[in-house]
Design a protein around this nucleic acid. Structure first.
Lengths: 196, 196
DNA sequence: TACAAAATATACCAATTGGTATATTTAAAA
DNA sequence: TTTTAAATATACCAATTGGTATATTTTGTA
């Protein structure tokens, strides 16, 4: 890793929480220089513009979350177990502190949908690939006999899971109430268990 | 209604969609003057600052949505019917066009949670009172015998309903896919029907 | 150790930000 | 119809915005 690569990574790590908390248009260049202790010169030496920093920060935040879940999902042998990783981790409030400022998906989605086409597309892809992963788990669960084939619509179930999770994170974040997150995750657990 | 009151209302109506699309920090004074055709003088003659306009715009957006749902809820005689108004209206994509820019609750919640304490508190109150209304419907449904008392946790169900709805709106907005909204609303319908 | 290249800092830019003081117009009351 | 007050417009303000050209420092390599 060259010096420049390290600096680039350093800028991303330092600004990722800022972008997640303040949003794209809420984060200024001075926020970026403050957070990194670097000057504009070195920011613009490593990134073409603010946009590039925001994009990299978003990628970083998503990966951070993704890695946590992937690690736990791999440990599980059954597909039901893999699906249950989500309510399990979220019940522990695990993530909300990892990525400061709440879920980067919902944060970026709500800000970018009407304002930032590039970022919008990135979020869309993240959501769709998340959905595909869930669909795969559900379908494989059906194949393996864990879930009953009839009456299950994998696509619908996957979308519902994502909606519940994102909605739950939003509610917990705005109310500061951890128990509401736990409550909603119980409902999600039930949905998964009803697949049997 | 005096002239000033009418102008104030005019400013709110014209800027409400802007704030909902661009967000608080994304909406500038020039956006406001552009949208209204008025000058800064008359904006600041009617509002103390940008904050006041944003707060009024948020209130306006929430009320607009609230009125639509209230009207339909009143028509329903059973509590199950009242709860089902949500999936029914959202399946038709009814709201997403009423309040331009998607759901003001999720938009404002994700932006304000880490940045704007006053707005944050307002969103929190909106969500909590929405939850209380749902809890009331569920409890009354139990009293009336529509729902079976045991195994129902009204608070948990209400929170889950809100999470699903908000998450669904977010997904539909970012993917531009109406059918995902319909899919998720079917899941919500099932949750409500399972209360029997 | 010298040197080229990469990385970072400095100092600037025009444009825009939210906000204000004052001038002008419009509307209501006497 | 005149006076007064309310409503709106004009013209400004300092501060901050994202961005850039250039100077300086740091780094790896010959």
């Amino acid at each position: 890793m060259t010096k420049a690569q390290r600096t680039k990574q350093f800028i991303i790590e330092k600004t990722a929480p800022i972008f997640n908390m303040k949003g794209y248009s809420g984060t200024s260049m001075s926020d970026i220089t403050d957070a990194t202790g670097l000057t504009k010169g070195s920011i613009y030496g490593n990134f073409a513009n603010k946009d590039e920093v925001a994009l990299a920060a978003f990628r970083f935040n998503v990966k951070k979350l993704h890695d946590i879940f992937s690690r736990e999902i791999e440990k599980e042998k059954t597909f039901k177990g893999k699906l249950l990783v989500y309510p399990h981790l979220y019940s522990d409030y695990y993530d909300l502190r990892v990525t400061q400022g709440g879920c980067p998906i919902i944060n970026t989605a709500t800000e970018a949908d009407d304002t930032h086409p590039v970022l919008r597309k990135k979020v869309e892809r993240v959501i769709l690939s998340w959905k595909e992963q869930l669909v795969y788990f559900i379908e494989q669960g059906i194949v393996s006999g864990e879930f009953k084939a009839k009456s299950i619509n994998p696509e619908k179930t996957a979308l519902t899971m994502i909606a519940i999770i994102e909605g739950a994170v939003m509610i917990a974040k705005i109310t500061g109430n951890l128990s509401s997150l736990t409550d909603i995750m119980q409902s999600l657990t039930k949905i998964i268990e009803d697949l049997e």
